[in-house]
């Protein structure tokens, strides 16, 4: 037996979960368990109380609303993987989700768990940021929305209060005809990405870029929108040289340094992953690929 002793709670409603969260000593929320369970098994975390969210069925949904994708915090990653709406309207999410762990972990892992764990290399926060998503959290004072751009407060730390709970995310779709690209570099399939890039592009009939979105994961402490690169790209005629020049900016990123890669290697990968993601997006504009 690996996990330390704890008290176990399995509320069936969000308000019960919020109540437990504010009342209990040193609680931890258990969503899909694909990050918390390893940490419990290794006793990196020693909660006095585990609040299991798996019985809150109201947090498990996936639907389209006014052109945006609405997903519950407890919606499984596999539900994104096998959703027709995601495949048709959110191809960036579809491409990214196949890089999230493995089939066995996507079957359990949740959207909300990945967002709140906020691993710098996690794919779901990266694409959520790329798509200007908004998350909703519930707390004792009711619900509030947080723009994905304001969600990462620091390394693996979402801007959520200790008595709040993420309940869902709203992800706007880009118009039909946009191009998307998600690429990542990892040692083996399904490993944590050392660097990843998510790109979205819109171009006019002459190939001039009218709208661009670029987000890098795995390089800095939190997934990072590259606004300067986006600005540099809009108005230019898309080409590999244009992308290469604009992506040089990524070399200036404040990069993590760990056993997997030194900072300058991550910065280099950031330029390469960005260019590849943009090239992939460009190749798909207007349904080209």
């Amino acid at each position: 037996m690996k996990p330390p002793p704890f008290h176990y709670h399995d509320p069936e409603t969000v308000s019960d979960a919020v109540g437990l969260l504010s009342r209990l000593e040193n609680p931890k929320l258990l969503a899909g368990g694909q990050s918390l369970m390893p940490m419990l098994n290794m006793r990196y975390v020693l909660p006095d109380n585990v609040i299991d969210l798996n019985k809150i069925t109201a947090l498990s949904y996936l639907r389209e609303e006014n052109g945006a994708l609405m997903a519950g915090a407890m919606t499984r990653q596999r539900d994104l993987e096998f959703s027709d709406v995601v495949a048709k309207r959110h191809p960036l999410i579809k491409e990214a989700i196949l890089n999230v762990g493995h089939r066995q972990t996507r079957n359990r892992g949740t959207v909300g768990g990945s967002l709140c764990h906020l691993d710098p290399s996690a794919e779901i926060p990266t694409v959520a940021l790329a798509l200007d998503a908004t998350v909703t959290v519930a707390g004792p004072k009711g619900n509030r929305d947080i723009a994905m751009a304001d969600f990462p407060a620091g390394y693996m730390t979402p801007a959520i209060e200790p008595d709040e709970l993420l309940i869902g995310i709203r992800i706007p779709a880009w118009p039909q005809g946009h191009g998307h690209g998600f690429v990542e570099f990892s040692r083996r399939h399904g490993d944590f990405a050392i660097a990843s890039a998510a790109a979205l592009l819109e171009e006019d009939a002459n190939g001039k870029i009218t709208r661009a979105s670029l987000t890098i994961g795995g390089v800095s402490k939190v997934p990072t929108r590259m606004r300067d690169v986006e600005k540099a790209l809009v108005g230019q005629i898309a080409s590999e040289d244009v992308f290469r020049a604009a992506c040089e900016e990524c070399r200036k990123m404040d990069a993590l340094e760990d056993v997997h890669a030194p900072a300058n290697y991550r910065q280099h990968l950031a330029t390469v992953m960005s260019r590849r993601a943009l090239m992939a997006a460009h190749g798909r504009v207007g349904g080209r690929a």
Binding site: P3, Y8, D10, L30, G33, Q34, M37, P38, N41, D52, N54, R78, R103, Q104, T105, N107, R108
Partner: peptide, 16 residues
């Protein structure tokens, strides 16, 4: 296979 879907049994609690 948990309700027919593959899952890692080291990452689940028995109570679940």
């Amino acid at each position: 296979l948990f309700d027919g879907l593959s899952a890692r049994s080291c990452l689940m609690l028995a109570v679940q």
